[in-house]
Amino acid sequence: MLPEKITREMFDKLVSLAALELDEEESEYLRTELNHQLAAVKELSEIQLDEDVQPSLHGIECQGNPPRKDEWQPFPDPDAILALAPEREGRYFVVPEIAQPGQEGQ
């Protein structure tokens, strides 16, 4: 049986998994809206489906391009893309420590 409401504890866990941080006001507002949205989708669980109803990943059968040849198509100016980085050294992106000692796997 699924919980009907997202509790504060579950919500904080979700926020952490989503790599977000929220202040108190944002948390309360977003958790309220989330619960309202879950109430709005409750209807889905009440729909009886025949076993043969398949999931649709797209509405329309994909009639896309055949795969193109596996050929290297270099972008003419990769440095223009690298230049978008907030911080870099040469062609490397610079980031802070990956993990503090004792915090691996967080």
Binding site: A19, L20, E21, L22, V95, P96, E97, I98, Q100, Q106
Partner: peptide, 13 residues
């Protein structure tokens, strides 16, 4: 920020 994970969280926040 202390580490990469905090960079993600604070940047996204």
């Amino acid at each position: 920020v202390q580490d990469l994970s905090e960079l993600y969280r604070v940047t996204r926040a």
